[in-house]
Design a binder for these strands. Structure first.
Length: 304
DNA sequence: TATCCAAGGTAAGTT
DNA sequence: AACTTACCTTGGATA
């Protein structure tokens, strides 16, 4: 076992809980099983774990991490320092990014609650599958689906006497039948997941390839996957491929547009996307979207 | 206890 | 190209 500490003094503001529990990333688990409960201070020191895929770490690497004030403590089967910096976007200058945010009451409220939340830089394949599964689904259930996929098809990894599962590779997931996936409660998303996994496994399409393209071309290219429309494509671009200008137009941001930025509703996804991007700041609009999403989605829960 | 509704949408069929 | 409709499942709201 290896372990280490990352000081956040050089990194800048960071909030592990809101980063991992804001509905961006679905392959981390909380050791106490209280993911998404929003238990406040209890979560501040909770351990989170995942298996970093071979494609990123060179081996399927178990990692767990917790935040204690201005430092991150981690334990892993590898030296996980670099992987954590990558996955959690610790290389972002968050304070400078937040400086670019528009002056809006809802944005200020979100910052008051979640200052330090970062976007993630998740592995492309699991992000693609997670957001195919996200259609008309609650955050906690999307998370459950990914856990079932890992337990059913992913490589087993042992760490500290416990068994964990990597997210399945495209090849592993492509062996799943539609009825198996339906039995894992994917519903009508089952054939989408199967077909898109087969596309990656066969080399017919590769989500990482779109990195070379311009933002809108990349979004368009990702919609070639089955079950991937413009919204899911934006999620993959934002949470995995580093297109920080991508603004997924989900139900919450659409509500915010209707209530607060009605002039940005241009009818079609593409045109509304351009308008809201300009409004939220062309470079980091996706960062603003994620703060808004997390705030709006959880504010009723928080006020009870 | 029973019924209804919406959940981080997409694909396929119409107009 | 824009507009409808069907689609799995289930936790939480409403009757």
């Amino acid at each position: 076992m290896e372990s280490g500490t990352i000081s956040l003094e050089r990194v800048g503001s960071f909030d592990l809980q809101s980063t991992l529990e804001s509905g961006q990333s679905y392959t981390w688990d909380r050791a106490d099983g209280r993911m998404y409960e929003r238990t406040g201070a209890v979560g501040a020191t909770a351990w989170y774990h995942t298996v970093v895929p071979k494609s990123l770490a060179g081996t399927d690497a178990f990692v767990r991490v917790r935040q204690i004030d201005e430092r991150l403590e981690w334990e892993s089967s590898i030296d996980a320092h670099e992987e954590l910096c990558t996955l959690l976007r610790l290389d972002d200058d968050l304070d400078a990014i937040i400086e670019s945010f528009p002056e809006e009451p809802a944005v200020s409220e979100a910052l008051d609650r979640f200052y330090g939340m970062r976007l993630v830089r998740d592995p492309p394949f699991s992000t693609l599958i997670s957001f195919i599964c996200s259609a008309q689904m609650r955050v906690s259930r999307i998370h459950q689906m990914q856990r079932r996929l890992a337990e059913s098809y992913g490589t087993r990894v042992t760490f500290d006497g416990q068994t964990y599962h990597a997210f399945p590779t495209p090849e592993q997931l492509a062996t799943a039948t539609e009825s198996e996936l339906r039995s894992l409660k994917l519903g009508y998303r089952a054939p989408y997941v199967r077909e898109s996994a087969k596309m990656v496994a066969s080399g017919a399409h590769d989500p990482t390839k779109v990195r070379e393209l311009s933002y809108e071309s990349a979004r368009s290219s990702l919609t070639e996957f089955v079950g991937v429309g413009e919204k899911v494509a934006d999620c993959v671009l934002l949470f995995s491929l580093g297109f920080l200008e991508a603004v997924p137009l989900d139900t919450w941001i659409r509500r915010a547009i209707a209530e607060r930025f009605p002039d940005c509703d241009r009818g079609t996804y593409a045109e509304t996307s351009r308008a809201i991007r300009a409004r939220l700041g062309d470079s980091y609009a996706g960062y603003v979207q994620t703060y808004l999403f997390h705030h709006l989605r959880t504010k009723e829960m928080a006020s009870v």
